[in-house]
Design a protein around this nucleic acid. Structure first.
Length: 515
RNA sequence: GCGAACGUAGCUCAGUUGGUUAGAGCGUCGGAUUGUGGCUCCGAAGGUCGGUGGUUCGAAUCCACCCGUUCGUACCA
């Protein structure tokens, strides 16, 4: 019921952090998902789907790093008082799924899935409370060959989406290397868990704050522009410099060509190598490097970078991050590097939470919306101007049956011998209540290739008017007066009723430049 | 979460020290053109001035709180 009372009218508004998606967006995303899927299928991964809701405890809220355990997730209580939460990533639900179906799944279990995830956080530009991820995981594979494969697959995905080699890079690090470094500077043990987190967070900010900012955060702390003070990790000068020495290794590869060997050598030569977990981590990185190199993936695609941190909750070994390296202008016209569009790593303990033993697993997650925004920027996505429907206009409402017959004839005829992969030609009869002028305006706005026009003259003569809207637009720009415009009827021609389908087919072909 | 700025029509924005009926451009709809998308001209619709309360004879304008947006920062599985 329409509300005349303006004061009490229901406001039509979206909850903050959520967006409506429109045709162009949806089509572009579907295209993208299909391309990613093809890559994963090529590697032998199979699809699986889990629901939006999981039991809250299954999502892993009791894992470390729960400064604010009740924030960030949408939760509600079920009839039986059990807490349910909307999933905030696709990894924890996969771990639940694998644990629940462990005995009947082939191991290693290789699967991919795309889906919406939800985070109850402050939204910002390009940052929403509902967004899509596309994951691929290998569960039950202890070998770093699985990690190497995930990295290569991530690189393949970027190229399948049209990102040129050199415009992206898959960065690889190992959590064990960072753990080893922290152990070496005296941050080992349970009592230092909090400071270790602070150190990892500091390292993670290299991109944004630079070496100086990280140095402050490793020491006493840092004051930002607004005067806010962030407490640091409180490391000694030597400890901080030791951590920062990792950054010196970045770029070792570029200087030497295409192999990750130089950075591996430097990692091995470091004094940290005396720490067992560090040495183990470097060993794994060396193996990954040699595996991807043997497969032909050089540092222009997969690069070892000791400054990569990624998620703090559950990664136990190698971690990956897909970065776009080209610059794009932001709203202010400044050039900025697009940055991370996906990440992942090894999470040996996640499935084990549901079972007695750890199940070694590794995976990768693509931020679909973010990557879509990047691709749009590259011009690799967003064929916005899709051809719209052929519009059959209605001039004489008493002859609706005739217009309907024409519409159906075109709809069937134009789509008769399409291959299954070809986009159908949409055909519609104008269903609004307005006159001819508005109908053609409608066709124009729908980006229609042509409109069919018929009144009593046409029905009597057995010939219909076909108006080529693209050709008409072209001709119209050369016509100044409205009288002449009316007289010319640019782009318009008449065809025999019996030849309608063939004539429209020919017109569409001409427009595609095939005739 | 903390700090700051901003919020006027669908969009981009004017709006004087607090003073009559809040404006423009673009867009939308209609007419000139009863059967033809453009151009041009004419006209119309469209506003809880983000919300609520307060100060005042009088508030888009001043004050408080709230909501939203943006920026910085923290967190980010």
């Amino acid at each position: 019921m329409a509300s005349k009372d303006k004061k009490n009218r229901l406001p039509a508004r979206l909850p903050r952090g959520f967006i409506d998606r429109e045709a162009g967006d949806i089509r572009a995303t579907e295209e993208m998902l299909a391309a990613i899927k093809r890559v994963y299928e090529r590697y032998g991964f199979e699809p699986v789907e889990t629901p939006f809701f999981e039991y809250t405890e299954a999502l892993g809220k009791f894992l470390p790093d729960q400064d604010r355990p009740n924030e960030g997730v949408f939760s509600l209580q079920d009839d039986d008082e059990a807490w349910l939460s909307l999933r905030y990533d696709l990894t924890a639900p996969l771990a639940r799924y694998v644990a629940e179906n462990y005995d009947r799944l082939p191991k290693p279990y290789r699967s991919y899935r795309a889906g919406w995830v939800f985070r109850n956080e402050k939204p910002g530009p390009g940052r929403f409370r509902q967004f899509m991820q596309f994951d691929a995981d290998t569960v039950g594979a202890p070998s770093v060959a699985a990690d190497a494969e995930i990295c290569m697959m991530a690189a393949d995905v970027m190229e399948a989406l049209g990102v040129a080699r050199g415009d992206y890079v898959i960065k690889v690090n190992n959590r064990k290397v960072l753990d080893g470094v922290m152990e070496a500077i005296g941050l080992g043990g349970e009592e230092n868990a909090g400071r270790r987190l602070t150190v990892l967070r500091a390292i993670d900010k290299l991109d944004r704050l630079g070496v100086e900012g990280v140095r402050e955060l490793l020491g006493e702390g840092r004051e930002d522009e607004s005067g806010d003070f962030t407490k640091g990790a409180g490391l000694s000068k030597e400890g901080a410099e030791a951590v920062l020495s990792l950054f010196d290794l970045i770029g070792s590869n570029e200087r030497s060509g295409t192999s990750n060997a130089p950075v591996i050598e430097k990692l091995k030569a470091s004094t940290f190598a005396e720490t067992a977990v560090y040495a183990e981590g470097v060993g794994e990185l060396a193996e990954i490097a040699s595996l991807v190199e043997a497969a032909g993936y050089a540092t222009d695609r997969i690069e070892i970078d000791p400054s990569i941190v990624r998620g703090l909750e559950y990664y136990t070994g190698p971690v990956f991050e897909a970065q776009l390296t080209f610059e794009v202008p932001n709203e202010k016209g400044e050039k900025v590097v697009f940055g991370s569009v996906g990440g992942g790593g090894r999470y040996d303990g996640l499935v084990g939470r549901f079972r007695g033993e750890d199940v070694p697993s590794t995976g990768f997650s693509i931020g679909v919306s973010r990557l879509a925004a990047a691709l749009k920027n590259l011009g690799k996505l967003g064929s916005e101007n899709e051809t719209g429907p052929v519009v059959v206009t209605v001039m004489d409402k008493s002859r609706l049956a005739d217009y309907q017959a024409i519409t159906t004839e075109l709809r069937v005829g134009l789509n008769a011998d399409l291959a299954p992969s070809e986009r159908p030609v949409p055909v519609e009869m104008y269903l609004g209540g307005s006159g001819m002028k508005a109908q053609l305006k409608y066709a124009d706005r729908r980006n229609a290739p042509c409109a069919i026009i018929a009144g009593s003259d046409e029905f009597d003569s057995g010939r219909l008017q076909v108006k080529d809207l693209l050709e008409g637009k072209r001709q119209a720009s050369a016509i100044a007066s409205h009288e002449e415009y009316k007289e010319e009827r640019p782009g318009q021609f008449d065809v025999a009723r019996t030849n309608l389908v063939e004539e429209v087919k020919a017109l569409l072909k001409r427009q595609r430049g095939e005739a």
